[in-house]
Amino acid sequence: MSLEFHVLSGGALFIETTGCPSCESKACVKVCAEQSPGPVLILGEDGRPCLKPTLAEIKRGVCTECLGCLLECGIRGNDVVRFQAPLEGLDAYVAEQEEGGRIPVYRRGM
């Protein structure tokens, strides 16, 4: 099971909710409740996060894209939230730089 919604910036959030009922922290819902103008994610009766506003409202900017759900689920939950944000051309730019021996720091060894 999954939950997917698109946000104002053009990005999208994906939550793989299959294991959410067993999550004790419900961290995504808790952090979202702290955000103005109010929560996007609320706890459903089945113990999974669900959407309070409509998809259209979220796309218009109700979700502030604080990325709290992504980060909190990562350290307190099951790490099942993913965020995709378009950055058109960045991967191609990095690949081109690497071909010329100019490797970004994060692609080098530690």
């Binding site: 946000v7 910036s9 990005g11 990325l67 944000a85 950055l87 960045l90 990095v94 970004p104």
Partner: peptide
């Protein structure tokens, strides 16, 4: 700016290979 905007610009800034 939204956190997602910060996420994106940080990725761009750190893509500069000479830093």
């Amino acid at each position: 700016p939204s956190a997602s905007k910060m996420y994106r610009i940080t990725k761009v800034i750190l893509a500069q290979p000479q830093i």
